[in-house]
């Protein structure tokens, strides 16, 4: 199998964040979201974000992810040629499922956030056997 080339997609700037307290530019991270029987998994590309500069917030049925880049990574650098904007990442999702808050797990490695949102017991898929009469 020959892998294809990655198609370039421009970064999308977040125009307006609610309750924005921190200055600076934010972008929408590209995400994959998939659902298994017992959990929702969200993977988000957040390059430049280290484990100590990420926040995950669950409020009601909304989950918000926010990551910041380190200003010191850009100290003393004078831009000569620019192809992408630098900044943090922010995105909010409305969850269609009840989530078990205590069981949420988040980790970030190589600039990819993996967020595991376990479904609350009552929201888990149940297989219902249809009985023939």
């Amino acid at each position: 199998m020959c892998p294809s080339d990655i198609e370039a997609r421009p970064k999308q700037k977040v125009e307006r964040r609610e309750e924005s307290t921190r200055p600076g530019a934010y972008f929408h991270p590209a995400v994959d979201i998939f659902e298994a029987a017992d959990e929702l998994v969200l993977l988000a590309d957040m390059p430049g974000v280290s484990p100590d500069s990420i926040d995950v917030n669950l409020e009601g049925d909304q989950v918000t992810i926010e990551g910041r880049v380190k200003p010191e990574d850009y100290e003393g650098l004078k831009p000569l040629h620019v192809e992408y904007g630098v900044g943090g990442f922010w995105r909010r999702f409305t969850l269609g499922e009840a989530i078990d808050r205590e069981g949420i797990k988040a980790q970030i490695k190589g600039g990819v956030l993996a967020l595991h949102l376990p479904k609350a017991e009552r929201a888990r898929t149940r297989r219902i056997t249809v009985q023939a009469s």
Binding site: D5, I6, E7, A8, P10, K11, Q12, K13, A25, F27, Y74, G76, L77, K78, P79, L80, H81, V82, E83, Y84, G85, V86, G87
Partner: peptide, 18 residues
Amino acid sequence: SAGASAAGVYPPGNVFDT
């Protein structure tokens, strides 16, 4: 367009001078 990135190239790259 400010804040976006160059179209058609992956990954976009920035060049700096120290």
